[in-house]
Computed example of a mutant assay.
Amino acid sequence: MENSNERKEILDGLLEVLRTVRTIDPARLEGVTEETDFLTDMNTPSTELINIAAKVEQKFDIEFEDEDIDRMGSKVKDVIDLIIMVKERGANK
């Protein structure tokens, strides 16, 4: 069962990760919400999403499957949903 607190914690962690990504202008990380789109709102190159995914795995100590990455949308909430799903999947192993 996910709660908004968990989502907020994940968003905070995600922002920490995004601050380490060279191609993202830090100014674009102000006021990020779950509806923020990596590609349009942050101007993130789509190739950078793979790099971000790898950093997210390290940060949250999870492992994405290839199809997770393929299915990942370009909005912040898509990444949060994916992190929660992978964490739950890991807990159920």
Rank of each mutant, 00 (worst) to 15 (best):
L15E: 04
T44S: 02
S4V: 05
I84L: 09
N43F: 09
A27N: 10
T47R: 10
E35L: 09
K75L: 09
D78P: 06
M1F: 11
N92M: 14
K75Q: 15
R19Y: 09
E16D: 08
T47Q: 10
T47K: 15
I24A: 02
D78K: 11
K75R: 07
L82P: 00
I24D: 03
E30I: 11
R19T: 05
A54H: 07
E65N: 14
L11R: 04
L11M: 07
P45S: 07
E67P: 05
E6V: 14
T23I: 13
R89D: 06
D25F: 03
K8M: 09
L82A: 02
N51R: 08
G31Q: 08
S46L: 12
D37A: 04
I80C: 05
E48K: 07
T20Y: 09
K75C: 06
L49S: 00
P26F: 06
R89H: 04
T20M: 11
S46Q: 13
T23D: 11
P45Q: 09
I83T: 02
R22L: 11
N3G: 11
I10E: 01
T33R: 12
L15M: 10
A91D: 12
K75F: 02
D81Y: 01
L11Y: 04
E34G: 15
V86W: 09
K93L: 12
E63A: 13
I62E: 08
D37E: 14
S46A: 12
D81N: 14
V32G: 00
E67H: 11
I24E: 03
K77I: 02
E57K: 01
L82D: 03
F38I: 07
R71C: 04
I84A: 02
D70K: 13
E63Q: 15
I24H: 04
